[in-house]
């Protein structure tokens, strides 16, 4: 079988690719649900109602969407420039840590405190990603492996913090950090739910990243560096500087995600703050075709799968790992769908 590149990918295929991929993933995970003996169509129905059926369910889905938009953007901006940031999980935790730690010695009114802590969280993420990217640019150390390994190091560091110098003395020995002061908490959007103002920050970031990507010189340079580093250098793009700035943007978004999650949802830091938001962000970015506005829709889908499956697995006794299976299958299906939107089989 031979493939030839399409001169121009048809628009319907580019837009339809994520839908086809998601459908394929849902069919495949339906087979696995059937394997558990649960009624498949009832399971699909329960997933939808558990994610969107009630006001509470919908706010819960949006609460999950918030960090996924940010980690999805982090992956999208990095992958565009072929900076393989697989460390969003670590940047997320370090961002959350920075927010909680800085809140201990900052004594500011809420109006200043909240942006300051978000900035600290973003800064922590920036530092954590700039180092591996610098090591790649300067000495050719593959950033995939270093960012992956840093995830484990950061999680252990957070564990050390919440059992040591940041430990809450009132928590009866439970490993959690001291709580954030009230003025560092984000406002609730809907009373008696977990939905918080961080959603608007995430949406604003998506629009901002889209504008940067579309209309700025930096966005063009980043895309050029991703398309072909050699050609970009030849055209006069300062490669090192561009990659470092991409790393700042990507790491900053992932760190911000952590800070917002801890300020909006929990109010204190534990080692289970993220159920893999960093890794799911990669799926979100790919499903969105690395488009910043598409990230919002893809994050909503992934969040709905997680929240909906949670309810479904409790109701029908299907292991809840099926959510991760569905999400990872949609990533693999999306890769194939992107391929067939760019190539066709030669007859």
């Amino acid at each position: 079988m031979q493939f030839e590149r399409r001169a121009k990918p048809p628009l319907w295929l580019t837009l339809g690719a994520p839908l086809i991929a998601v459908a394929a993933a849902l069919v495949l995970s339906g087979l696995l649900i059937a394997l558990s003996g649960a009624p498949v169509f009832e399971a699909y129905g329960t997933i939808v109602t558990s994610a969107f059926g009630t006001r509470l369910a919908f706010t819960e889905t949006l609460t999950r969407t918030t960090p996924l938009i940010l980690t999805g953007l982090a992956a999208a901006v990095a992958f565009r420039a072929r900076v393989w940031n697989i460390g969003a999980e670590g940047q997320f935790y370090l961002g959350a840590f920075a927010a909680v730690a800085c809140a201990q010695w900052l004594d500011l009114p809420g109006v200043v405190m909240i942006p300051a802590l978000m900035l600290m969280g973003a800064l922590a993420g920036v530092i954590l990603l700039v180092i591996p990217v610098l090591m790649r640019v300067k000495s050719g150390v593959d950033e995939v492996v270093t960012t992956l390994l840093l995830n484990f190091i950061v999680l252990l560091f957070v564990s050390l913090a919440v059992e040591g110098f940041l430990k809450d003395p009132m928590a009866f020995g439970w490993p959690k950090s001291v709580p954030l002061p009230a003025e560092a908490r984000l406002d609730k959007l809907v009373p008696k739910t977990r939905l918080h103002a961080g959603l608007f920050v995430a949406l604003a970031c998506a629009v901002a990243v889209w504008v940067i990507d579309r209309f700025s010189t930096f966005g063009l340079r980043a895309r050029a560096a991703g398309a072909s580093a050699e050609a970009a250098t030849f055209a006069g793009v300062p490669l090192t500087g561009t990659l470092i700035r991409v790393a700042c943007l990507s790491g900053g978004l992932a760190g911000l995600a952590g800070a917002i999650e801890v300020m909006g949802v929990r109010g204190y830091l534990t080692t289970d703050l993220s159920p893999g938001f960093g890794y799911s962000g990669i799926v979100v970015a790919m499903l969105a075709g690395l488009n910043a506005l598409g990230v919002v829709a893809a994050a909503l889908f992934v969040a709905a799968v997680f929240v909906g499956t949670d309810g479904m697995s409790r109701a029908l006794e299907v292991p809840s790992y099926i959510a991760d299976v569905t999400v990872s299958l949609s990533l693999l299906a999306m890769l194939v769908a992107i391929f067939f939107s760019q190539w066709r089989i030669r007859r």
Binding site: F3, I86, I282, P319, I322, V325
Partner: peptide, 26 residues
Amino acid sequence: LGLSQHVTGLGITLFASSFSYYLFRL
């Protein structure tokens, strides 16, 4: 298909680990 080896590999890792947890729990 010549897809990105980075992203494909990560996809396989995410799929294989969640699939094995799922089967184990079944």
